[in-house]
Design a protein around this nucleic acid. Structure first.
Lengths: 262, 262
DNA sequence: CAGTGGTCTAGACCACTCG
DNA sequence: GAGTGGTCTAGACCACTGA
């Protein structure tokens, strides 16, 4: 519409008349640029969770690309879990990912797909220095200031998992137990609402270890039993790692499935 | 070209002239039907592993659909891991999935992406009756005849995992230790080569358990240590479950990552 | 250089949802 | 019935590969 918008569009997308990108300007495919624009606008709060985006045709007109290109961009965001689609209704912003992450707990045996009803409980939020491993993964200097968040997961009252998350302190100045509780207890929800940062899981490792005395006390179970140790790194949509998290998960009565919740 | 081909095409795809499917004939989208045709031809051995398919345009002409539709079908098969693409070269049939499956072992810490060099060793292949859980998952009657395959995984000589796989005996009559060894020791490779069945993992569960005495002996390690217990069900491309597999995985020096190998 | 996958457009119709 | 996502086509150009 405006001059600003016109300049912006030309700069970002190149020559539209031909339907092709100018080679000199080309960095990313059009649909990838559309993705970035949409992510930016979602993170900036232009559309809230479970709210519908403009239709594919409206977005196409607004962004001055074809509907197919918008569709491709939306499709990738759906795959990434940022959006979801409902035929005949529209495209919607997904809820921020749960702190639990992909996968879910089910009764062992692979048939009963009982979705979990996990309850998250914040144990504490403190400041400290980054352990070497955390610093390395998050790209911080040794001993850099970090925020440590400890959480407990309960399934129908019983403790089933214990989380230990580290975030760089610098970009998250106001993050404390109160603000996390205010947002419902989840780190990801809090980062989204308070800092406009939307994280996604980028790496995960699993091991079987013996439950230590301290963790056992936190969980209220006997020590010296085998537990699933889950290591996870999450990053911004742009790929910058911002969270290192370790989880101890009891799997004596529940099994951990990989993949998304159905 | 021929009469047979014409009838086949019309029956399968409906009215091509309009570019739309006739409502009366419609069951699946065109691209999904193309997928089925391609899977059939791949499983039938029309193209071998790492061999190029005809180009998208050739397939489009042959199947009497547009290149875009072929592309969408190929794209989903790439996502499923059946095919892979190389820009400027072509679309190729992927190797049959390894018995190891998705995920891989790495040194703990999430940074070193050292791909594994796992060696598979066949311990035995015997016939027996399906345990109840296996029968239930595979849709067999209680005590139905099954084939049990035991395998050992080694990483630079050291045993790291122990597999216990069950398959229904009926469709796999000639399957024995000799034929599996002949195909390199993998169950999936053997099923593909000898029976034209291509399996894909459809479900996976993980738990932490204590290593039992017998399994410890098989692995040549001390019992009473925590190990990762992995339960997996695999099915044909059409979705019929055909394999139940349990794995014991040592994770004291190696961590198990989720997701595909990079 | 020819051939391949990768991107993009414009236009069309279908299937679903909801008022 | 209007509006949305879902599918399909035809045609074009780009970027990469390998002979």
């Amino acid at each position: 519409m405006s001059y600003i918008r016109l300049v912006f569009t030309l700069d970002l997308f190149g020559d539209k008349k031909t339907g092709m990108m100018r080679n000199t300007l080309r960095r990313l495919p059009l649909y990838a640029q559309i993705k970035s624009v949409l992510i930016r606008r979602i993170v900036d709060g232009e559309w809230q969770a479970n709210q519908a985006l403009p239709s594919e045709w409206e977005l196409a007109a607004e962004l001055d690309v074809s509907q197919g290109t918008v569709r491709k961009a939306l499709g990738e965001l759906v795959t990434q879990g940022v959006l979801y689609r409902r035929q005949g209704r529209g495209t919607f912003v997904a809820e921020v990912a749960s702190d639990w992450g992909a996968g879910y707990l089910v009764t062992p045996g692979l048939l009963n797909e009982k979705p979990d009803e996990l309850v998250l409980e914040l144990l504490g939020c403190s400041r400290g220095n980054a352990p070497d491993e955390v610093a390395q993964v998050l790209g911080l200097r040794r001993g850099a200031p970090v925020i440590r968040v400890r959480q407990l997961w309960r399934l129908s009252g019983l403790a089933v998992a214990l989380d230990d998350a580290y975030l760089p302190a610098e970009p998250f100045d106001g993050l404390d137990a109160r603000s996390i509780r205010q947002c419902g207890g989840g780190v990801y929800v809090t980062l989204q609402r308070r800092f406009g940062v939307r994280l996604r899981v980028t790496g995960e490792q699993l091991r079987a270890v013996m439950l230590g005395r301290e963790d056992a006390a936190m969980l209220g179970v006997a020590p010296d039993q085998p537990v699933l140790s889950q290591l996870r790194v999450s990053a911004t949509m742009e790929g910058e790692p911002l969270e290192w998290r370790q989880r101890i998960c009891l799997t004596d009565s529940l099994a951990f499935t990989t993949g998304r919740q159905p």
